[in-house]
Design a protein around this nucleic acid. Structure first.
Ligand SMILES: Nc1nc2c(ncn2[C@H]2C[C@H](O)[C@@H](COP(=O)(O)OP(=O)(O)OP(=O)(O)O)O2)c(=O)[nH]1
Ligand SMILES: [Mg+2]
Ligand SMILES: [Mg+2]
Ligand SMILES: [Zn+2]
Length: 573
DNA sequence: GCCGTTTTCGGCCCGACTGTTTTCAGTCG
């Protein structure tokens, strides 16, 4: 599947076109096409072969030709032309805050600056300030940025890091400033797996005081911009935080705006125009008249749409579905009845079985699946059958104690070994209620090998769940080479469930994975936290976020089932 | 460069902040 590759090429084309001063709408068309291709569930090569490229939204004859060119020759003529016109290294300059395509080009045209090093030298010599459109302030800002190595590099962080920090900052502001309402917005509210920055909306009649408090929070390392309604800072953790303050009556329109995504907002605003309306962060207007905007729902209802859940707001077709009145009823954060992937101190977890169970009960669960590592995973204190038997005794005892109020399922996280076998022979697996299997070694094998390993494991009777099917660790390593399409097919054939691993550094399967697996194969999934400590059971929300972003309903997730039904399905042979 | 269920041409979201400017362009959200 070369979709990502093609999309990146189009993004590159867009950046260079922008630098070269192309028509902004054309640039937007490149970006829009790239975005659509990224979201595509099927390989673009196949569409190209069948001459169906223009069936992709945002791809017309011009871009289709470029895609074909790229697939056949590895590059695009137009892109090479741009590269001759403007040095691609200028894109590096755009990573400095405050420098965009216009400034980068001007630096090149007037001073011949092509690289960050050359820029630094020129700034130090005071050459920048005399350029048209530049001045002493801009020169100083460039120098400051370069000295602090401050770059707007795509340094996205895991939502597992960003969400708790956002909650902390929100509480701090709430405690110290005259706040009416305060909400976390942006990609965090949409539960995206990685977060570019933290966005917080505040309603207050005293924006000056709110900004003063926010700018002076102890976590704030530096204030980037400070205005009456918008302030941006960098925290000690080097994460940007944007705070937007509006008066209380604008809350609805403002939270709609600040939640995004950008593409969703643009689509919505275009729809408004077609209906003779205008949307901004202050409301939805007909001429001068404000028709609504106190509540978020207003913005949608005045367009004749139902409220769209934030996790769906990615312009992946949700507005069209809303127009048709066919939005799915997403799984709710309260629908989960149990956690299907949990470790204890028996292997590499830190808490006891009982402690994990008690925490699960606190969360309102009816059951939990204990799935410690099997012996081949030495680094994670993988266990022998003998040790599992001992663990079973403890679980039996606890189950007796809990009675019918709560159930601990006895499972194991088997390792899918290099040849596709697992730690124990099949007959030994009968002690478990059911088994989970996952790849923890041999990541570098060929796609065919890895795919076959997983398929073989799926053929084992007791195996009911494949853990973290793609093996990616966000920000660390990509997916191992696996034909995920094949795995989806096999899951459909065998009835084995694929996991949404809710550990924030995994989130595997991903939102797009499950969206495609459901729409193409009708698959259902389990959500498991892979918790190694009681507190990590709370990671469930990230897994549910993935499911919601993948448009899944309660019925698509097995562990929304009450205990008896869950048991019946998982123990079915 | 793409799009259209009244358009195949004329639109393509809209506003805040900064630094430059003397009325606004560029950058960013
Ligand atoms: N209408 C409109 N809204 C925008 C635009 N850019 C950003 N927004 C809104 C929607 C975004 O979700 C919100 C916050 O902007 P961010 O740049 O922080 O983006 P977001 O949080 O979605 O993603 P991120 O993870 O931070 O990269 O502001 C824009 O160009 N037009
Ligand atoms: Mg953001
Ligand atoms: Mg932001
Ligand atoms: Zn695990």
């Amino acid at each position: 599947m070369r979709n990502k590759e093609v999309a990146n090429k189009l993004y590159e084309l867009a950046s260079l076109a922008e630098l070269a001063g192309e028509n902004p709408f054309k640039i937007n068309a490149y970006i829009e096409a790239a975005r659509r291709i990224e979201n595509l569930p099927i390989p673009i090569e196949e569409l190209a072969k069948e001459g169906k490229l223009t069936e992709i939204k945002g791809v017309g004859s011009g871009i289709a030709k470029k895609i074909k060119q790229f697939l056949e020759t590895g590059t695009i003529e137009k892109l090479e032309e741009f590269k001759k016109k403007v040095p691609p290294s200028l894109l590096e300059l755009e990573k400095i805050p405050g420098i965009g395509p216009k400034a980068a080009l001007s630096l090149y045209k007037h001073l011949g600056i092509k690289t960050v090093e050359e820029l630094k030298e020129a700034a130090e010599k005071g050459k920048i300030r005399d350029l048209p459109g530049f001045g002493p302030k801009k020169e100083e800002n460039i120098l400051k940025a370069l000295q602090g190595m401050k770059k707007k590099e795509e340094k996205r962080v895991s939502i597992g890091l960003a969400l708790p920090l956002a909650e902390f900052i929100k509480d701090e502001i709430k405690k110290k400033a005259p706040v009416d309402k305060i909400e976390i917005c942006g990609s965090i509210r949409r539960m995206k797996e990685t977060i570019g920055d933290i966005d917080i909306l505040v309603t207050s009649r005293e924006s000056e005081k709110v900004m003063e408090v926010f700018s002076n929070l102890p976590v704030v390392k530096e204030v980037l911009v400070r205005g009456e309604t918008k302030t941006s800072v960098i925290t000690e953790e080097d994460i940007q935080v944007d705070v937007r303050v509006v008066e209380p009556e604008f809350f609805g329109a403002a939270i709609q705006y600040f939640t995004g995504s950008k593409q969703h907002n643009v689509k919505l605003r275009e729809l408004a125009i077609k209906k003779g309306l205008k949307i901004n962060e202050y409301g939805i207007f007909k001429g001068e008249k404000r028709m609504g905007g106190e509540k978020e729902e207003d913005v949608y209802s005045l367009l004749g749409l139902p409220w769209i859940p934030p996790e769906m707001r990615e312009d992946r077709g949700e507005i069209e579905e809303a127009i048709r009145g066919e939005l799915p009823k997403l799984i709710d954060y309260k629908d989960i009845k149990g956690d299907t992937h949990v470790h204890t101190e028996y292997s590499d977890g830190v808490d006891s079985i009982e402690k994990m169970a008690e925490e699960a009960i606190k969360m309102g669960y009816e059951y939990i699946v204990i799935s410690d590592h099997a012996e081949s995973l030495g680094v994670a204190s993988g266990m022998s059958i003998k040790k599992f038997k001992k663990q079973k005794k403890e679980i039996d005892k606890l189950n007796e104690k809990f009675g019918d109020k709560f159930r601990i399922f006895f499972s194991v996280e088997l390792n899918i070994l290099s040849d596709g076998s697992v730690d124990f022979p099949e007959e030994e697996l009968d002690i478990f209620d059911f088994c989970i299997a996952g790849i923890h070694s041999g990541f570098n094998q060929s796609m065919e090998k890895i795919t076959n390993r997983i398929k073989r494991a799926m053929g084992i009777k007791k195996v009911k769940i494949i853990a973290h099917p793609t093996g990616r660790i966000i920000g660390e390593r990509g997916e191992y080479k696996v034909d995920i399409e094949e795995i989806f097919k096999e899951a459909k054939n065998t009835g084995v469930f694929l996991e949404i691993n809710a550990t924030p550094s995994r989130l595997d399967l991903s939102d797009l994975n499950v969206m495609h697996a459901k729409s193409l194969y009708g698959l259902k999934f389990t959500i498991g936290t892979d918790a190694h400590a009681a507190v990590s059971l709370r990671d469930m929300r990230y897994g549910i976020g993935v499911a919601r972003r993948g448009w899944l309903t309660k019925e698509d997730i097995i562990n929304t089932l009450p205990l008896k039904k869950f048991e019946k399905i998982m123990k079915k042979s």
